[in-house]
Nucleic acid binder design. Structure first.
Lengths: 142, 142
DNA sequence: TTCTTGACTTAGAACCATTCTAATTTTAAG
DNA sequence: CTTAAAATTAGAATGGTTCTAAGTCAAGAA
């Protein structure tokens, strides 16, 4: 979904499209690297020197609850966020700490609403390993 | 794999099977509820009043590196551990905070070693939602 | 057995990501 | 313009995890 479309969806009664919210969503739109909260905060701090970390957290929670962004908890004790909400797998390289999107065809959970009587609300298919770049570095260093 | 088998594997040179390590592994063997570090610590504290939290963390790391237990990072900012290391999906209920094992047949990643040039070392297929018990409670309260 | 060395454990401090709080500012509605 | 609700802010508080330095234990060497 485009940025304008998502922004438009926020201008409904009960919610306000503030400059801060606009900025956070726009940042995620432009940076598809699955940034951490810290990264988002530091970048926005340059534009909006008064912005507070609490606002970043509040805004990310707000955007998530409106289904506009996705939370990623792939790395120990650190939150990351993704502009793309369509279900897809994430790969985390424990060497360089990068998160990659990966496409997995034929996931049997893709369309499921329930499993074992539990209601499925969100899929978080995480894969941990060493990414192609780090594998290459290891080869080069031999 | 049985408890005795795993314990036996620890009595090799370079590593020591201490009382604490034995206790942690045994606790996980007996408690398949995907306990948090805090839960493990509190329970073992009753038996071994001198045991330290650092030991719990060290031991869990140690057991994980020996492939004897599995780390679960399904809940924001909290580690959980699982005696079972065979790949299986986990379901987290955001209402009651319980983690359930679920069996998913036909996962296309099950046997894969690589994806997009990245080396797969661990699968963490997490599902978030509302569990059957919490769904039932909601129904009852209407 | 005793000695020595390295591995392990301990208590508590430090760290750091996240959440909370209270005050202030902004927005929307009347 | 006024008012009330919502949003933002700075900084404190929280809480899970990691680090540190000191002490303890275990295994191999003599």
């Amino acid at each position: 979904m485009g940025l304008k479309e998502k922004l438009a969806g926020l201008n409904k009664k009960g919610s306000t499209l503030t400059i801060q919210r606009h900025a956070v969503l726009e940042y995620l739109y432009e940076n598809r690297t699955h940034p951490t909260v810290e990264e988002i905060y530091h970048s926005l701090k340059e534009k909006f020197s008064a912005i507070s970390k609490a606002t970043i957290y509040n805004t990310l929670e707000f955007l998530k609850n409106h289904g506009l962004i996705q939370e990623i908890t792939i790395e120990r004790g650190k939150l990351r966020f993704d502009y793309e909400v369509k279900p897809h797998h994430h790969f985390f390289c424990h060497k360089c700490k990068h998160v990659y999107d990966v496409n997995v065809e034929g996931c049997p959970l893709a369309e499921k609403k329930m499993i074992d009587g539990h209601k499925i609300e969100e899929l978080r298919p995480y894969i941990i390993g060493t990414c192609s770049k780090c594998l290459q570095k290891k080869r080069d260093s031999r």
